[in-house]
């Protein structure tokens, strides 16, 4: 399980990083990096102000 961040929607605010329970996300300048700690829990998808995140099923 993982997530996809649509970089054409993402506003690189980092809200998703703040709520990630496993610390899998990082805001690197203007993009979000996801590492293998991601469990696909979907919390980031829920809070994204712009709806840039999808959970891969």
């Amino acid at each position: 399980m993982s997530i996809s961040v649509n970089k054409y929607i993402c506003g690189y605010c980092g809200a998703c990083v703040g709520v990630c329970p496993t610390g899998a996300l990082e805001l690197v300048e203007t993009w979000i990096e996801v590492d293998n700690k991601c469990t696909g829990c979907g919390i980031c998808q829920k809070i994204c102000p712009l709806g840039a995140i999808e959970v891969n099923r």
Partner: peptide, 26 residues
Amino acid sequence: DGMESKVGRWAGIETAVKPSEMETCA
């Protein structure tokens, strides 16, 4: 390092907030 802080987590400090503890803004 702000809302998206990693520094605290690297030191073992729990800084993750729940969706009910975060205002999402535009």
